[in-house]
Design a protein around this nucleic acid. Structure first.
Lengths: 237, 237
DNA sequence: GTTGCCACTGACAGGACCTGTCAGGAGCGA
DNA sequence: TCGCTCCTGACAGGTCCTGTCAGTGGCAAC
């Protein structure tokens, strides 16, 4: 039996019965316990919510399968349009994720809604106009998630460029323009940058801790509206 | 990437998009074509209903009822961004539906993903720029769904206006601009209209039957590319 | 009927990775 | 303290995975 099959078999077994010991799995699958432990490590690394407790055994936590979802037709429409827009307007990684998500939604939909879903007449063609961006947005998203500071040079609308070090906090979609907002270490304040004016983005090796006054929450709360308005100004070309 | 992951990825990719060539899969997964062929052999041996046709590619036949996996974090990100965009850019009814749909998705997420969902740093502010539209898009969507002809006057870019009767087929999102495409009874051909140039939209009492050559399918197939390109031209301002 | 596309197979060599064995650590309840 | 069980590291042997190369065959367009 191949390893891939075995990994799958382990999941299936845990799905059927609540609890399994490594020894039981090893016997059933005719491998050593050590191999089971390695398999478990890999499964967990792949995101399978398995929990092992010493003295007890392995349990599959809930939330591994996507249950059936009921949506109203209009909600489906909204999801499909949203996913299609992301597919055409966001970076490749996110675009693929949108398509995957949609495929999963479709898979758990009752049949009649599934049919409805395939007839939705809302599209987001990918030959639209967007300001060309040289930043790798997926990389930037990663930096935000994992709280890495970034460095780049920014070219303002007068054409002057400046080197910045920023704690990236959020990305905003303004149609043809994307912006990134964060705490600018140079200006000691929140700033919003158009992605199409950022060049030479480097994700630094430096992590930042959320400090009071410099977090996403602070940005949205204290400065949110005006900053968003400013960003809109930028985007309005 | 491990083999087990790759096998799984292949299934997911085929679920997402109808057709894949071995070469495309090989590129995406960074292995040789030979390896893909071997993977396919194993998948088929495991009972996955994949069909390969020479000169065409691989297709996943329907009815593959493997339990659907929970969303990955990146898929959640894509769904959330999509819903937020719809919320800020589409008509009220659809915007509300997007919010509702998101709430339903959130309800089935395990705790840690739910937490993740609430920290997503991708936004779509609603103070963006869009061409002002006087058409009620929800009404237009209704007309498309229920196959009602519509009448309106359209103002082309030279500023001349003409009265049209159209079988509406689809709506496209081009960022600041929305378009509607359909079969124009005046020009006896497919036409694409910018919603911001439509005035006095009236949904007629007249339903249309899908006639060969005048359907959404025909539009997408025969005329799709050029029409979409035209629409893009329009949208490019 | 020739060409091009593409699924598919076989052989082979090198090496990545999988596996079992052994040894030991750590958490938890009795 | 003991017993149960998860968990980790090191290591050696061998399985099987992978890329390369060469070739077959089906299908459609030209």
């Amino acid at each position: 039996m191949r390893r891939a099959d075995r990994l799958f078999a382990i999941i299936q077994m845990l799905r059927r019965e609540k609890l399994f010991r490594a020894r039981e799995l090893a016997e059933k699958l005719e491998v050593s316990e050590r191999t089971i432990y390695r398999d478990m490590q890999d499964l967990v690394a792949s995101g399978v919510p398995i929990e092992g407790e010493a003295g007890v055994g392995y349990v599959l936590r809930g939330g591994y399968d996507l249950p059936t979802l009921m949506f109203t037709p209009e909600e489906i429409e909204a999801l499909v349009l949203g996913a299609r827009i992301v597919r055409s307007w966001a970076d490749c990684a996110l675009a693929d994720a949108a398509a995957d998500a949609l495929a999963k939604v479709e898979a758990v939909l009752p049949a009649e809604l599934r049919e409805y879903m395939n007839e939705i007449a809302l599209f987001a063609p990918d030959n639209h106009f967007s300001e060309p961006v040289c930043v790798d947005i997926a990389e930037l998203r990663g930096a935000i998630k994992r709280r890495f500071k970034i460095a780049f040079s920014y070219c303002n609308k007068e054409g002057r460029s400046s080197a910045r070090i920023v704690r990236p906090l959020l990305i905003s979609f303004f149609g043809p323009v994307w912006t990134m907002s964060g705490w600018c270490e140079l200006r000691k304040d929140f700033r919003t940058f158009r992605l199409d004016r950022i060049i030479d983005l480097v994700v630094l090796d430096q992590r930042f801790r959320p400090e009071p006054g410099k977090t996403l929450h602070d940005f949205l709360k204290a400065d949110g509206h005006s900053a968003a308005a400013m960003a809109a100004e930028y985007a309005r070309q």
